Simulated assay, not measured.
Amino acid sequence: MIPPVPVPDATAQAHSERLLELIRSQIRAHGGVIPFSRYMELALYAPGLGYYSAGARKFGADGDFVTSPELGPTFAECIAMFSQQVLLQLGGEADFFEIGGGSGAFAEAALRHFDAIGTVPARYLILEPSADLRQRQQQRLQQALAPALFERVRWLDGPPEARWRGVLFANEVLDALPTPRFLVQGGEVYEQHVALSPEGGLISVDQPADALLRAAVRHIERDIGTPFADGYRSEVLPQLPYWIQAVGGLLHDGAMLFVDYGYPRSEYYLPERDDGTLVCHHRHRAHGDAFHWPGLQDITAFVDFTALAEAGVNAGFDLAGYCAQASFLLNNGLPERLAAIGQGQDPVEQHRRHNEVKRLTLPGEMGERFQVMGFQRGVETRPAFARGDLTRRL
C-alpha cells in the first residue's frame, strides 16, 4: 500500500509517462515480458529518463531520502581516516575511487579532510553514470574546493581500465543494482517478470528461472540449510561476483569498502521475510510498489552481505571485516571528530553536528541499520573493524 505522498506536478507526471512508454516498448519488443531486473534498470538508469539519470533532486531534505554524507562532514571524515591508513601503507601514487558520487557532498568533505590530515590521494576518481549528477558534482566541487584539490578529481565513464592502487568506496550503491526477484513454487524456481495489463499498466508475472538464477537460489538453500517454502519470494544478485570483478578486479593493492543496509544471509532469507526486501522511496516515504510513478522514485533492495563477502573473496581479496556503521565510525576517528566539534564552534553549530553524529550512530537511526564491509589486498586494514566485528554472523 502506498502511503500518502505529494502528487507529482504536471511536468513530473509527463516525465514519468515518457519513461513508462519506453518501458512499454521494451516489453512489446521482448515478447510481452521483461525480467523485473530489466524493469528496475530502466526505471533507475534509462538515459535522460531513469530516476538517477534525470534532473529531479534525489538527496537531502528536499529530495526522496537522506544519505550519511548529506547529514554533514563527519561520515566522510571518518572514511578519510580509514583511507589514510591505506594510502600511507601504499605510499606514492595511490588513488581514491568513489562509485556513485551522489550530490558531491561526500567528495567535498573527504577531500577537505584528506587535505587537513596531509594525505591527499594522487587522484580522486568518481564513477557517476548520471550525466545530471556528474554536472552537479563538478559544479559543487569546483566552487567548494581549492584549485589544487579540484585538479585531482577525475570523472570516469567506467571502472579504471589499468591496474591501480588505493581505496575503492561505495556508499549505498549495491542496494541500487538492478536485482532479479525469484519465487519458489512447487519446489521449482521462477523469476518475476513485468508485463502489460490490457489497459497498458504494469503487472507482475512469473516465468521459469534461467539456469543462472536457479543455481543462485539453490546455493542459498544449501547455505541456509533448508529449502524455501512454496510461495517464498525474494531477491538475489547472481551477477554480483561479476560486478565486483568489474569494479575492483584491477585494484592491485589496496582496500574496497562498502556501506549499505542489509543482512547476513541467514537473516536476509528468514522464513517470515517471504516477500523479499524491495523498498521504494518517494519524498521520504517508503513503500513497496515498484510500479508507482516510474522514474520519480528510488527502487532498492537490501544487501546480502554474505554474498558480498563471497564475491570479494572470489575476486582475490581478503575479507578485512564486517560491522555496523556505528562501530566502524568509532573505530575510525569518530571520537576525535566529536572532540573537534566541541572546539571553537558556536552552540547552534555544535547542536547540529551532535545531531548529525546521533543519526549516524544510534541503533534506531543509521548506526545499526547500515553495515560496513571491507576487503584488502596488499595492505592491512583489519584494525578498522576490530570493535564490533560481525564476521562470525556471515
Rank of each mutant, 00 (worst) to 15 (best):
A176P: 07
D115A: 15
S16H: 14
S37W: 03
M366E: 02
L141P: 11
G262D: 00
G201M: 12
G248I: 02
G101P: 04
C78Q: 09
A43S: 14
R152S: 14
T381H: 10
V189Q: 13
R273D: 06
N332P: 03
S53P: 03
G295Y: 02
A176S: 12
S130R: 10
V379C: 04
A144P: 02
G388D: 06
D289C: 13
A286T: 13
D175A: 02
P129N: 04
P335Q: 12
D132M: 07
L278F: 12
R123Y: 09
Q245L: 03
P264V: 00
L174H: 00
A290M: 15
G55Q: 05
G312K: 04
P8V: 10
L42H: 09
Y268K: 00
E172N: 04
D115W: 08
E188P: 00
G312A: 03
N171S: 07
G231K: 14
V5Y: 09
T119P: 00
A76W: 12
R154Y: 06
I27Y: 13
D210W: 07
S327P: 02
G32I: 08
P383Y: 01
G225F: 10
Q350Y: 02
G374N: 08
P159S: 13
L149T: 13
G92M: 05
P180L: 01
R123A: 06
